[in-house]
Design a binder for these strands. Structure first.
Length: 433
RNA sequence: GUGGGCAUAGCUCAGUUGGUUAGAGCACCAGAUUGUGGUUCUGGGGGUCGGGGGUUCGAAUCCCCUUGCCCACCCCA
């Protein structure tokens, strides 16, 4: 608009009070799920050394190659810079190591919530600044933990009102050595057939050969039929882990969809990988992704330490809620009522304002959320304002009330009015609300 | 990075083959009701029609350039 000369940067948006409800609900759900699971909150910095991300995510990953929000420290040396975190895991792992946890208290269950940054073209469900809720657990190889993590992610969405269509898709990537061997066999399998693949696959071939497996192109899908499967090279331990993980999920009453084509883009995953989908959303159904990353702590300078986690994106979750009509109207009204002031201190005339001003202070001291006019508006306008704010009670203060040492307590729902002393009115409402 | 679409009031949008002073609904303000909200009625404020250039007697409308936004692809949350 012509009057607004400044604009929120591309891919960012302002969450104004009236649009914040879903975000608050997601934060509430996240904290509740974390509390149930015994997760402690961690808040690493929003930016880290660039190297931390290039090493953990992999130099070839799209995130590192073209989506980093980087701040140069000196000159133009690309490695000597800071980068706003494109995801949460790397910083959390760094903090885990830096705090000395591996030696002192290797088993940790942490969660985090906050903004992430990726420099990419925004579109529906994708922003340059977006919020994630994530958990990371260090120090256990137990496949039952993998099942707990998937279950926790599911609980997050269920707490928000997602229905039974919610779907956990799981797969295994094997151990690092398995992956290396599998990668080699995939490379040699696909190389002679590259001409038959789509353009995307040809470029994926060099960057991340695993991605050829989940190409949506029909010709490529049939070309994948004879590709070597991970199971042919996967070691015994990783296989047993996967089986135990699936049994654990079954124990929790979860019915995951086993998806052999599920391959996550970041380098650090090993063994269990999973995504939470809400299929009614179609192409944008992925709401959450995660998995095990047993090699990452060591890769970032710590001792070998198994770990697993997930990250849920607020942007896509919010979109999904919107499309599902969540939260329900009744919940919206309840939430609005919870945020609405309890009392409006209304001055009839100019000479009543000081008394209303003091009354508002009394209300607030007693813990009541209180509104008052600061724009010298008429009594009528103040009533309108109180109504607009959904305030349930108004203290009317005019010459009569001041003379009698009372306030006129008006119940805005049923219209009843009563003249009582201010302190009595305050304590009554404070007890009630 | 590649491709497509859209820019008119705070918001959602009308605006005829180019033709007086650019409109509606919602929101906002005031009055009807001099101490009373939600409904209703009346009135009001608010626009460089994204920006720049061109064609024309005349441009929101046609042409060129530019900026911004949205959507899709790659990839991902």
């Amino acid at each position: 608009m012509a009057s607004a000369s400044f604009h929120a940067p591309r891919g960012t948006r302002d969450l104004l009070p009236e649009n914040l409800l879903r975000t608050l609900l997601m934060e509430e759900a996240a904290r509740e799920v974390a509390r149930r699971g015994g997760y402690g909150e961690i808040r690493p910095p929003l930016f880290e050394e660039t190297k931390l991300f290039s090493r953990s995510l992999g130099n070839q990953s799209d995130v590192v190659e073209k989506e980093m929000f980087t701040v140069l420290r000196r000159g133009e040396a690309s490695e000597d810079s800071w980068t706003f975190r494109p995801e949460g895991t790397a910083g959390v792992v760094r903090a885990y190591i830096e705090a000395g946890c591996p030696a002192s208290a290797p088993f940790q269950k942490w969660f985090y919530m906050g903004p992430m940054f990726r420099y990419e073209r925004p579109q529906k469900g994708r922003e340059r600044q977006f919020q994630q809720f994530g958990v990371e657990v260090f120090g256990s190889k137990s496949p039952l933990l993998d099942a707990e993590i998937v279950d926790g992610a599911m609980q997050f969405f269920e707490a928000l009102g997602f229905g039974p269509e919610l779907e956990a898709r799981v797969n295994t990537m094997g151990d690092e050595s398995d992956r290396a061997e599998w990668r080699q066999s995939l490379l040699s399998y696909f190389e002679p057939h590259l001409d038959a693949r789509c353009e995307d696959c040809r470029s994926r071939f060099k960057r991340n050969v695993f991605r050829l497996l989940d190409c949506k192109n029909d010709a490529c899908i049939s070309g994948n039929q004879g590709a070597p499967a991970l199971t042919t090279v996967m070691g015994k331990e990783a296989s047993e882990h996967h089986t135990a993980f699936l049994m654990g999920l079954e124990r929790l009453g979860r019915k995951p969809k086993i998806d052999g084509s599920l391959v996550r883009g970041l380098d650090y995953y090993s063994r269990t990988v999973f995504e939470i989908h809400y299929p009614p959303l179609g192409a944008r159904s992925a709401l959450c992704g995660g998995g095990r990353y047993d090699g990452l702590v060591e890769l970032l300078g710590g001792p070998p330490t198994p770990a697993i986690g997930f990250a849920a994106g607020f942007t896509s979750t919010e979109l999904a809620m919107e499309e599902m009509g969540l939260p329900a109207n009744a919940d919206v009204i309840a939430a609005q009522a919870a945020f609405a002031p309890a009392v409006y201190c209304l001055a009839i005339g100019e000479e009543d304002r000081e008394a209303a001003f003091a009354a508002a202070h009394e209300c607030r001291s007693a813990g009541l959320s209180t509104a008052i006019d600061y724009r010298n508006r008429s009594a009528k306008a103040q009533f309108k304002e109180a109504n607009r704010l959904s305030v349930p009670f108004v203290f009317v203060i005019g010459p009569d009330e001041r003379e009698q040492g009372v306030v006129l307590l008006r119940d805005m729902v049923n219209g009843e009015e009563e003249k009582i002393p201010l302190d009595e009115a305050v304590s009554r409402l404070a007890a009630e609300l």
